[in-house]
């Protein structure tokens, strides 16, 4: 029986909505977290000259035959969990074996992926995203990535308006037992007057794009679900992630040429799901900022009524409009 394999953390509640939608449509779902392997889930699979990988996964509640998997939904599972009492060296060795063995078998599945893990990993890199978006014809803000103070000064001199800085990778970290975040910063002359520490790592700078509002465009397969994101505070206007409570949302329809280019970008990145961020200027021009291969979407569905979970289920079940 065709089965949708869901590999996700148990506490990822938006995934619950997808599982329930699949269930309501009569699909067979096998959900597991990588954390269940190896202690709560057993894997056995064979390959030889006459057959591809054949076998399955068994948990205390259900069995999965790899041959039945028609689609796989992958959403940041937890790490493998091993027996108490392993040494650190044993745990690291076991984790590498599990990733290559368990992860290797699953990623070899020839089925519909939303999205394939290796494509998601690759697409996490902002420079790669920006290069792909440019090649697909999307408008980008002029961008600099550097660890050289002189390159920052030159970039600031070349850009006629304001520039911003934001992390090129994750903006959150834990330091001194506290979670901290770095949001988009509109740079002042004082900021640019002291670039001590620039050499320590890569930094990303972009031209500030005048905005009427931002758009969160969620792609489920080829289907776009777009929401205008408005903020009435300075912090939220600069970076909406910094002030969620100030935000209001409104369904919107992207221009056809933007949709066409976004579909090309998704195809190029081999993603079947993505949460993209755009700035829309007062003149209505759309500027691409980034795509999140594992972005949040549930709150957008609630705020706008966009049937995103249903769109993801459609993609997993091979339903086309």
């Amino acid at each position: 029986m065709p089965t949708v394999l869901v590999i996700a953390a148990r506490d990822d509640w938006p995934t619950d909505r997808v599982v329930k939608t699949l269930d309501e449509r009569g699909a067979t779902v096998f959900r597991m977290d990588a954390a269940e392997f190896p202690e709560e889930a057993g894997l056995a699979a064979r390959i030889d000259d006459s057959h591809g990988w054949a076998g399955g996964v068994v948990t205390s509640h259900r069995e999965l035959d790899l041959a039945d998997v028609s689609a796989c939904y992958f959403r940041t599972p937890h790490p493998f969990r091993f027996a108490e009492g392993m040494s650190d060296a044993e745990r690291r060795f076991a984790a590498a074996q599990a990733r290559a063995g368990f992860g290797g078998i699953l990623t070899a599945l020839d089925c519909r992926w939303v999205s394939h893990p290796s494509a998601m990993s690759r697409a996490e890199y902002k420079p790669y995203q920006l290069a792909a978006a440019r090649e697909c014809g999307l408008t980008l803000p002029p961008t600099l990535i550097t660890n050289r103070p002189d390159a920052v000064q030159a970039f600031a001199g070349d850009i006629p308006g304001t520039i911003i800085c934001k992390p090129v990778a994750s903006p959150v970290f834990i330091e001194g037992d506290q979670l901290k975040a770095v949001y988009t910063r509109v740079l002042t002359e004082d900021d640019l007057g002291d670039l001590t520490g620039m050499e320590t790592t890569a930094h990303l700078f972009q031209a500030w794009v005048d905005k009427a509002y931002e758009v969160r465009l969620t792609m489920a397969g080829d289907r776009p679900f777009a929401a205008e994101v408005h903020s009435d505070t300075k912090a939220g206007y600069t970076d909406w992630r910094s002030d969620y409570k100030s935000l209001t949302y409104k369904p919107t329809a992207p221009p056809p040429d933007v949709i066409e280019r976004v579909r090309a970008l998704m195809h190029r990145l081999e993603l079947r799901f993505g949460a993209l961020d755009f700035v829309v200027s007062p003149a209505g021009e759309w500027t691409f900022l980034e795509v999140n291969p594992c972005g949040q979407w549930d709150w957008i569905q609630h705020a706008t009524g966009h049937p995103i979970a249903e769109g993801i289920a459609d993609e997993l079940l091979g339903v086309t409009e």
Partner: peptide
């Protein structure tokens, strides 16, 4: 300051 990434001077506590 010589070893801390420059952008972290803008880090905030939520």
């Amino acid at each position: 300051p010589d070893t801390r990434p420059w952008v972290l001077r803008f880090a905030v506590l939520p």
